[in-house]
């Protein structure tokens, strides 16, 4: 489970961690043994907590064995137990991942699938919050950019100059979400007597991608189970004297597709529809 891999990170940040489902203690025990999970998986077998939070999946028929499951999602709580953020997807087949939440909520740098790219006035490291996503998972991609001394690039919102722009190639493998740009700094340029929004030194751009559903992505992986997504970083770098030719840096992330675990618990532990 992706959460188990990120457990230490939550610990380091001083955060408690638990995963709740409507499964019985026995089912959770069987699953945790098989997958070597030791963070608490909690059993809300009568869905009491799920109902108290008003996240019972009310589209499941009442006579189904799956009646009682929640809409999947994550609550971020402060030390007093107040909800400070929620991560839920409208499509239950798409899921936020722990790595994605760590990146957005706690600013943890994505550390997987790293590649260094050397550009003309900058160098960057492309990374992702996981290198082996499962279908439907939402990941964070990051570009950690270091400009050479005295260089700047224009930030979005600039007028009359080329702002830095990160495009993703259309891909059947993953849908790209919007880029999150950090706050820019206002720089006064004597040569042109203008104040412009720029980035200098080090800055990080992030954006999420959602991996396609199993049927769509399976045919796209190669013989070793890998697939890639590609993009381009466009920018024009300037120093205090002149601006350089605009650049298009090719970007690429390669992932290993994690297959769904379809192993079930022994039949006697499996949940039966109500009344059976």
């Amino acid at each position: 489970m992706e959460l188990e891999k990120n457990k230490a990170e939550f610990d380091k940040l001083g955060l408690g961690l638990a995963a709740i489902s409507y499964d019985s203690v026995e089912v959770l025990h069987n699953f945790a043994e098989r997958r070597k999970i030791d963070f608490p998986m909690l059993s809300d077998a009568d869905s009491k907590t799920i109902r108290a939070l008003n996240i019972l999946n009310d589209t499941v028929p009442k006579d189904s064995a799956f009646y009682g499951v929640p809409f999947p999602g994550t609550f971020i709580l402060d030390a007093q137990g107040r909800i400070v953020a929620k991560y839920f997807e409208d499509d239950f087949r798409e899921r936020y991942t722990a790595g994605d939440i760590l990146a957005h909520q706690y600013g943890v740098a994505p550390a997987a699938a790293k590649t260094d790219v050397q550009g003309r006035q900058l160098q960057l490291t492309a990374s992702a919050s996981s290198s082996n996503p499962a279908p439907g998972e939402r990941l964070t991609l990051a570009l950690d950019i270091d400009l050479k001394p005295n260089m700047h690039v224009y930030a979005p919102g600039v007028e009359g100059y080329i702002a830095i722009d990160w495009k993703m190639k259309d891909s059947e493998a993953a849908a790209a979400h919007e880029v999150a740009f950090p706050a820019s700094e206002k720089l006064y340029l004597q040569a042109i007597d203008e104040t412009v929004p720029v980035y200098r030194n080090h800055f990080r751009l992030t954006r999420d991608i959602t991996i396609a559903q199993e049927a769509k992505i399976k045919p796209l992986v190669d013989a070793s189970g890998n697939f890639s997504v590609e993009g381009t970083l466009r920018y024009q770098a300037c120093d205090d004297r002149l601006c350089y030719v605009p650049q298009d840096l090719p970007l690429k992330w390669t992932f290993h597709l994690e297959n769904f675990d379809r192993q079930r618990v022994p039949p006697e532990l499996q949940r039966k529809p109500p009344g059976q």
Binding site: L3, F10, L15, G16, L17, A18, A19, I20, S21, Y22, D23, V27, I50, L53, I55, F66, V69, P70, F71, P72, G73, T74, F75, I76, L77, D78, A79, G81, V84, F92, A98, I101, R271
Partner: peptide, 9 residues
Amino acid sequence: GAVILFFRS
């Protein structure tokens, strides 16, 4: 604080 995840099953 804490991170509390709800999952299907």
